[in-house]
Amino acid sequence: MESTTTVEKIVRRELPAAIVYESDHVIAFADHDPINFGHLLIAPVKPYKTFLDLPEAVFLEIHEVARDLYRRLEAKYQPDGIGFMQNNGTYPDFNALDHYHLHIFPRFKGDQFGWKTSELGLQSVEALQASLTDL
């Protein structure tokens, strides 16, 4: 039996969500565990798993919605910045919803959200170039 993703349950109104945009192909709603108020997820209505699985029209609509929501978030929250994040990979390690989604969220100085890097440390341009050989 095929599982139903959280996004599909939201689309079918089986789970409550604060929806800010919905069309036949794309839905945007508030993250239930937000980085800041205004943290939204933009997702296809159908359960595409990765960035590469998205049909071109859905990909374009997601980015049109992101641009519109960016403007709306700026106007409402006057943030210091806007963040975007999108994860692909194995469920649940790298994609907790098992369904493509793009995060967009207001950023404020001191909001504690940050980027944690690996133990690689700063790299020379030469080392970075070598790591990209044959890419």
Results as ranks from 00 to 15, higher is better:
Val7Gln: 01
Glu8His: 08
Val11Ile: 14
Val11Gly: 03
Glu14Ala: 11
Leu15Trp: 13
Ala18Asp: 15
Ile19Thr: 13
Glu22Asp: 03
Ser23Val: 09
Ile27Lys: 13
Ile27Asn: 11
Ala28Glu: 09
Ala28His: 10
Phe29Ala: 03
Ala30Leu: 08
His32Cys: 05
Asp33Ser: 12
Asn36Leu: 09
Phe37Arg: 10
Gly38Arg: 05
Gly38Ala: 04
Leu40Gly: 00
Pro44Lys: 05
Val45Phe: 02
Val45Glu: 02
Lys46Ile: 00
Asp53Phe: 00
Asp53Asn: 01
Leu54Phe: 03
Leu54Trp: 01
Glu64Cys: 09
Arg67Trp: 10
Arg72Lys: 15
Leu73Tyr: 05
Leu73Thr: 08
Leu73Cys: 13
Ala75Arg: 15
Lys76Asp: 05
Gln78Lys: 15
Pro79Asp: 07
Pro79Cys: 11
Gly81Val: 10
Gln86Thr: 00
Asn88Ala: 02
Asn88Trp: 02
Pro92His: 12
Phe94His: 15
Ala96Tyr: 02
Ala96Gln: 04
Ala96His: 07
Asp98Lys: 13
His99Asn: 03
His103Arg: 14
Arg107Cys: 11
Arg107Ile: 09
Arg107Pro: 08
Gln112His: 11
Gly114Pro: 02
Lys116Gly: 09
Gly121Gln: 07
Glu126Ala: 10
Ala127Glu: 11
Gln129Phe: 03
